[in-house]
Structure formats: C-alpha cells, structure tokens
Write a protein that binds this DNA or RNA. Structure first.
Lengths: 159, 159
DNA sequence: TGGGATTGTATGGGCGTCAATGGAATCGCC
DNA sequence: GGCGATTCCATTGACGCCCATACAATCCCA
C-alpha cells in the first residue's frame, strides 16, 4: 500500500528549511525521485507536493491538447510555471520558497497532510480551520445517513 | 521525468546579456544541445526557447500537414523563419537579439517560464498579465466544466 | 522486566561552492 | 585603428553540504 498517509507537523528554521516527514521521503525515493515536485493548490491556501506520480497526473492532463495550441500553451504556463522542484538535502529537508510561504500563509511551522498519491503543506492555523469545517460537514453527512458517529474525521490526528 | 519547470527572473546587463537559469542550462545540456533554439511565440508577445525536444515537437507538428500545403507554409515560416540559435557563453549567458527584445517588449529584466518541453522568455510586466490569465483559466477548467470531455471542452482528466 | 545503549529523526548552525551579475580585457571584422 | 562581439575575471549573495545536538522509540541484555 503505497501512498502519503497521516499528518506531520514540523518547524521551519531560520533559513526556511523544514524536514520532509521520513515516511514521505522514503515513498518519494521509492517513486524514483530525488526532488520534490510542488505547486500551489488550486482551490486551497496550501501547497501540493509529490513525486513522479503527481507529475504524471499533471502531464496527462496536458497531453489531451495539441502541442502549440492555445489551450496547451496557457495550461502549461499555469502548471509548470507555478511549479517548483525542491531539492531534498541529505538531512531530508527542503527550503520552502517565499512565494509558497506567502501563498499558504506559512511562517514558522508547517503541516504535512498525506493525500494518497500526493500530499499537502499547510500553515497550522489554516489547516485547523479547514479541519473544523470538514468535521462539521462530515457530521451533517453522517447524521443524514443515520449512522453512529464513526469517530474522527478522515484526515487523522497529529503525529 | 524532466522538463522545464518553474519561473526565474533575471536581469539583462548593458550588453544585452542575460543568464539562462542554471536548471534550464543543465537540461539543455542533457538534451545534447549547446545552443539555445528560439523563435517568437506564435500567439504571444514572448520568445519560445528550448533544445532538441522543442525542435522535434515542431517537426512533428509540421509533419501532419502536407508539404507545400498552405498550413505547412505558414507554420514553417513562423517556426523556422524567425528562429535563432543563441549561443550560450561559458558563464551561462545569452545575448537576446534586438528583434526578440522588441517583439517581447523586454528592456532590462526578463522572466524565464518553464513549460515542460520548452520554456518562454517574457517581459515581467506582460508576463504578470499572462500569468493571471493562465491561473484564472486553469481554475475555470478544473472546476465544473466537463471533465470527461477532453476533446472540445477545456478539461482533461482528474489529477 | 527494567535500564542502558543504540538508532533514526528533527533541528540548529558553520562554511565552502556555485550561480548571477557587473565590468575589464581581448579578439575579430571592417 | 575603431567598434562590436566574445572571453575572462571579480564580487556578492544564496544555496548545498557537513557536523553537532536533542529527543524519542526500539533493542538488547542482564
């Protein structure tokens, strides 16, 4: 069962470095990646990250369009232009670029959230808000289904 | 999977030289190119640049049209007629020809934008608009529009 | 079974190297 | 010899690489 699972909270140091959770690192290594592929999440103030599977997913979305078509041009600008390949140093850390920290509202602490074939990087505060929403939403859904409270929300707890 | 990824902003000096971003240079080297293949982008005030993969993409794009057909003539003129092979000096810099700077509205700063198999060179001002447009477009594509209609609507597959 | 040792991870900091950039020097064509 | 173009050199600042520390979980062994 390969996939990014669980959430981890790590701190940024003064250089803007942060450790990628070890389980995520070993999964990336298994995908045959040395760098970490990242871009701003489309509909959330967070950063999407992953390895070759994430890249392939993006490439396949572009592949349906004719090369040099206007559609291909503009989408590749948005996809690749906003992406970064972050180098993972030998201690397992990355430096989060300024644009990403701004976009996600990150200052000195980040949350890594596993999402299967990719994961997300959040600021703790914003992730907390989102979790709250997700829980109430989930509760209303389960109530509607007439089930018992199944327990925690899907995204799990702290590591 | 490697391609041109991310955006870099570099300055032109008084001689019109500008550093090609180091990651782009190493990718060009891996493609077995020493020069940088460039031409004015078809529908945008920017310069397309790349290596052998870009040239192959152009060739295969042209190949679908019959030689001497009107489409072939028009496209080959656009792709080949105004193209240049810019020499990369030993410090990793190129000299942007006057025609290119004029076409792209470049004065003293340029933006290199990765687009996978190629990249583009923009003036910062114009790129900002273009980027806004691209992000908006991506959002609208990803949202509601038919995800299973790769052909005519804008959307590809799920990522 | 308890405690010490060991290992792996996260984190902080020092330092050398490389990339970007500006300017000088050299080459070549006219 | 003049002038543009190319090569070479110097500076600076960021980044990668390395080492040190702290802490927790695990293992080993008496």
């Amino acid at each position: 069962m390969d996939g990014f699972v669980a959430t981890y909270t790590n701190r940024l140091d003064q250089k803007g470095r942060v450790s990628v959770p070890a389980p995520f690192r070993s999964l990336l290594a298994r995908e045959g990646q040395d760098g970490l592929y990242c871009y701003p999440a489309l509909d959330q103030p967070a950063i999407d990250g992953g390895g070759s599977r994430l890249q392939e997913a993006i490439a396949s979305r572009l592949a349906v369009f004719e090369t040099f078509s206007e559609e291909h041009e503009i989408l590749s600008t948005a996809f690749y232009g906003d992406s970064r390949v972050l180098k993972i140093d030998q201690d397992g850390r990355i430096v989060l670029p300024e644009e990403f920290r701004t976009y996600a509202g990150i200052t000195d602490t980040v949350v890594f959230v596993g999402q299967g074939f990719k994961f997300q990087i959040w600021s703790p505060e914003r992730f907390e808000e989102r979790q709250k929403e997700a829980r109430t939403h989930l509760r209303s859904v389960t109530r509607g289904l007439g089930r018992n409270n199944p327990g925690r929300s899907a995204a799990g707890d702290q590591a």
